[in-house]
Simulated assay, not measured.
Amino acid sequence: MSSLKEAITWSGPAVVILFTIGRAESRLEEGEFDISGTRPDEVGLYEMSSEPGETPTAAWEYDLTFEEGRLDDPDFPAYLRECLRIASARAEGIAWLTFEGAFHFDHLFTDDIADQIYGYCVAGEEPVVTWDREIMKSDRWKGGVRGVRAVLDSAFPTGEPD
């Protein structure tokens, strides 16, 4: 698949998957994705549960469904950046955009899934979104994703408490 649009719509409707992980238990409400007149057609919300032994965090999945043609809007990546900014701030942690797949703490923001992430934001920092599959395969992109993992490891260290 050469385009992100093809990857996002491979199984049907255009669903942008936004995850958050952080300290805050609160979640975004559907209306909070209405930004500058752009909003999803539907919003699905799922609480992600930790596996025994995983680092305890508050994690949410938001499935933002759009009419496929809306992905062609040149302002769509800017809209996604604002979604990430708002979501990471609300989570008091990290927000990211990814394709459908497994959610396992050990693999978040690692090289083996870096090419499945097309946007990320650490609370208080500038969000990053790419709409280009070739960029997602680059070493530079992997380096940025690794930087997010370093933040995650620092904020949510694994291991047994003392």
Rank of each mutant, 00 (worst) to 15 (best):
A14D: 00
A78L: 06
P157A: 10
A114K: 04
P161K: 07
P157V: 13
M48Y: 04
A58D: 02
E42K: 02
F66M: 05
Y46S: 00
S3T: 15
A87W: 03
F76C: 13
T9M: 10
R27Y: 08
D106N: 09
W96Q: 12
I94A: 12
D34Q: 08
S26I: 05
R23A: 14
Y118Q: 02
L97I: 05
S3R: 06
W131I: 06
D34C: 08
R90H: 07
Y118E: 05
S26Q: 11
S11I: 03
F156T: 10
V43W: 07
I35K: 15
E6C: 05
T55H: 04
R27C: 08
L97K: 12
T110K: 02
E54Q: 11
F109T: 01
Y46R: 01
A7L: 09
V151M: 01
S88K: 05
E134T: 14
K137V: 01
G37K: 12
T20S: 14
P74Q: 14
L4P: 06
R85S: 07
D106G: 13
R81F: 03
F66P: 04
T57Y: 13
T130K: 04
L64P: 02
E51C: 02
G22F: 06
E125Q: 15
S11Q: 12
E82N: 10
E29Q: 12
D132Y: 01
G69Y: 12
D112G: 12
S138C: 05
G53A: 11
L45G: 01
D106Q: 10
H107F: 09
H107S: 10
E51W: 03
Y46P: 00
L80F: 07
S49A: 07
V129N: 12
D41Y: 10
A24I: 00
G12L: 01
G69I: 06
A58F: 08
F33M: 08
R27V: 10
V122A: 04
G144C: 09
R85G: 00
W131P: 12
G44V: 00
A89R: 07
E25V: 05
P127G: 08
A95S: 15
S88C: 09
R23V: 05
P127V: 05
D112L: 13
M136Q: 15
A14G: 04
I17S: 03
G143I: 02
E67T: 14
G37L: 11
E6V: 11
L45I: 11
F66L: 02
G144K: 09
V148N: 14
E68I: 12
Q116V: 00
V43S: 07
E54H: 03
E126D: 15
D75Y: 01
I117W: 08
L80C: 11
T65W: 01
T98V: 02
L152I: 03
E125A: 14
E100W: 02
A102I: 06
E54M: 03
P77S: 10
I21P: 00
E42S: 01
G31W: 05
V148C: 15
G69W: 11
R81K: 15
E51K: 15
D63Q: 01
E51D: 03
L84R: 03
G124A: 10
I117S: 07
K142T: 10
W131Q: 06
I86K: 11
V129E: 04
Y46C: 00
